[in-house]
Every structure is written in C-alpha cells, then in structure tokens.
C-alpha cells in the first residue's frame, strides 16, 4: 500500500504522465472547439491586443515616451499578467469542476491543477513568440541577459502553481473565493507596474515603489522586460537593498511549499466535500 501510494504520487510515473498529457490535450481541444480559426486564436489574441495597446499608449496616453520600445515593453507585461490571471483563476475552479472524476477514480489530484496551469503556460509561450517577433520588428537588441528569460518564466509558473494549489483547495469549502479573487486580481493589476512605467511610482513615493517591487509578479515582469526588451527597465535590485531584494524569491518559495503541503492535506477529502 505504502509502495503503491508512493508510486502513484510520482508525477513522472507512467500513468500520471499519460493522464497529464490527456488532460492538457482535452483542455486545448475544448477551448478552441467549433471556432473556425481554432488554435490560431492563441496567436491572434495577443496580436489584436498589441494593436490596441499600440494605438492607445503611443498615440493617446504617451506614458512611455521615456522608455525605448514601449509597445513591446507594454505587451510583454500584459501577456505575463494575462498568464497569471488565467492560470490562477482556472486553477481555483479546477478541482470543483472535475468533481465527477474525483468522486469516481483515485488519482493524484494535483494533476488537475498542473494540467490547467500547463495549458495556460502553453498559451503564454505562444504569446511570447509573438512578443519576440514584434521585438525584432521594433529593432530590439538581444543581449546575453536574454538567457535569463526561461528561468524567469519558470519562476512565474511556480508562483502561479503555488497560488493555484492554495486557491483550488480552499474553493472546495469556501465558494465565495471566486468573487474575492476576481476583485483581488483587479486591484493587483493596478498595483503592479504593467500599464505604467515604474518610474511613475518612484517619482510619487520611493517607499511605495519599494513595496511594489517586493511583489514577485512585479519583480518577474520587470526582470523579463530587462531581459528581453530594454536594459532601462527598473528591477527590484534598483529600488531595494540586498537582503530585501531577495524577498520576491522567498515569497515564491514559501507559496509553492505552503500550496503543496496544504493541497496534499486537503486532497484526501475532496471526494466527499465537493
């Protein structure tokens, strides 16, 4: 029994890999089902968004005149935010939505949360490829710092996964959470320097800028902008000193650990509580 449990809780066991693959595939198939353009929408959506942002923020609100390649800078931020929103909001519902499976067959429940976040991650990677194309057209020079990008994407994924694990387990007993999370994410969108340059916050209040940059999402967005768009993007280490500049990484680590432990503890009772 102990042996069997250990086997089944290994993500890389044969069964779990097959299950994860099928769940991700199903999610993708269902998302674009019955649409004429199908998978192309994964690319068309960021393209359309880029068109809108380009017009609004370079012709009407000229926030970013001081920042080189501002449209690309902006698009990258929005795409990263969209990923985090999609991954966490999707994860929140995922366990309850899959109640039919959970009540009928025994399998590691975290596969559900992972499959949902991986679908969002695949969308992010498709969107990022669009960003890269625009970056090239915009004349962005990629330096060696571009090599950091994969690690930052991984950090963002882990943070979304940790938050998703906590939210999905909480939502089983506490159904107000979906509305609360909507509001939290609305507020957070403006608390993170996505549509405005960080310099705006620094000019208004240094303290506020420091607090903003302790948020892992702000740190990741700014670091990725630094890595892929322009070295003038302000990073966490530009506004806070060393022990504190590690805070975003610590927050990610704690979130993932707490998420995994809490989810594991609660998951034994999902079948009877959903």
């Amino acid at each position: 029994m102990i042996e069997a449990r250990a086997l089944s809780s290994n993500l890389f066991s044969k069964r779990n890999k097959a299950l994860l693959r099928e769940l991700v595939k199903t999610e993708f198939k269902l998302r674009y089902q019955n649409s004429v353009l199908g998978y192309a929408w994964s690319l068309l959506k960021p393209l359309g968004l880029f068109g809108v942002l380009y017009i609004v923020f370079t012709k009407i609100f000229r926030f970013g005149d001081a920042i080189p390649h501002f449209p690309v800078y902006l698009l990258l931020g929005i795409i990263l935010w969209t990923f985090f929103l999609e991954a966490t909001a999707g994860a929140l519902m995922s366990i309850v939505a899959r109640g039919d499976l959970i009540r009928k067959i025994s399998f590691p429940k975290y596969i559900i949360v992972i499959s949902g976040t991986i679908s969002a991650l695949i969308n992010l990677l498709l969107s990022l490829s669009v960003v890269l194309i625009f970056a090239i057209f915009n004349g962005v020079d990629f330096g060696p710092q571009a090599l950091l990008a994969p690690f930052l994407v991984l950090e963002l994924y882990l943070f979304a996964l940790g938050v998703g694990l906590i939210l999905s387990a909480l939502y089983v007993n506490f159904r107000d959470l979906s509305h609360i999370w909507d509001v939290v994410m609305q507020a957070a969108f403006y608390a993170v320097p996505i549509i405005y340059p960080l310099q705006f916050v620094i000019d208004a209040s240094e303290i506020a800028a420091k607090i903003v940059m302790l948020n892992p999402i702000a740190q990741i967005v700014q670091d990725l902008r630094f890595s892929l768009v322009t070295e003038s993007a302000k990073r966490t280490s530009d506004v806070v000193q060393l022990p504190f500049s590690l805070a975003p990484y610590l927050i990610v680590l704690v979130t993932v650990t707490v998420g995994a432990v809490y989810f594991r503890k609660k998951s034994n009772f999902f079948a009877e509580q959903i």
């Binding site: 044969k14 097959a18 299950l19 693959r21 099928e22 769940l23 595939k25 067959i105 399998f107």
Partner: peptide, 18 residues
C-alpha cells in the same frame, strides 16, 4: 470529444500510456 479521443482519455484514467 470524439469517440476516439475519449478512448485515449479514458485509457489514461485507467493507467495506460498513449
């Protein structure tokens, strides 16, 4: 999903690889 897709999904639930 189609019948074929469901066979693969259901198979994965029962522990079969692709």
């Amino acid at each position: 999903l189609t019948g074929k897709e469901n066979v693969f999904l259901n198979g994965a639930m029962l522990g079969f690889s692709k």
